[in-house]
């Protein structure tokens, strides 16, 4: 697609989407939000980029293979679930710690894992479909 308005606007939109996605991810701690919806928002940002400047450009902007992002997300989520083991809690039970007055938890790690897995999974699908679509053209 060759639209000057879209490709110019997309640059701002992608940045906006990414910042907003991180905000939603962290907000999910105590309020509606979380890794899943945050991941979808971030994936939307890259999807818009792919529509505006093509899949190759979007892949370049992402730098990493989306499938690897998804895999790392899975690993984060699994680690968050397994962390409870050595501490004698049930699988996937939340583990909390306080560092310098800030509470951090394995729940957050799990959410980050979900965030990455959703970005990776959705972008893999979108890029694959776009690639196939261009070849069929």
């Amino acid at each position: 697609m060759n639209s000057l308005i879209l490709s110019t606007g997309a640059r701002f939109l992608v940045a906006l989407f990414l910042v907003f996605s991180v905000y939603v991810l962290l907000r999910g701690h105590n309020a509606p939000g979380g890794g899943f919806i945050g991941g979808l928002i971030a994936a939307c940002g890259f999807a818009i980029h792919a529509f505006a400047s093509g899949v190759a450009e979007a892949r370049r902007a992402l730098r990493v293979d989306p499938r690897s992002i998804g895999t790392w997300g899975l690993i984060c989520a699994l680690i968050a679930g397994l962390m409870a083991g050595p501490l004698g809690a049930a699988p996937f039970q939340g583990i909390w710690a306080e560092i310098a007055g800030y509470k951090i938890s394995s729940v957050l790690l799990f959410d980050i894992g979900v965030y990455l897995a959703v970005i990776g999974g959705v972008l893999t699908l979108i890029f694959a479909l776009e690639d196939l679509g261009e070849e069929v053209g």
Binding site: S68, T71, W72, G81, L82, G85, A90, P91
Partner: peptide
């Protein structure tokens, strides 16, 4: 008990992630 039950499910997923990265 819950770990004995959960680990046979978690192990393949961890393996899957590692195998995919490699």
């Amino acid at each position: 008990m819950s770990w004995i039950l959960a680990l046979p499910i978690l192990a393949p997923f961890l393996t899957a992630a590692l195998a995919f990265l490699l």
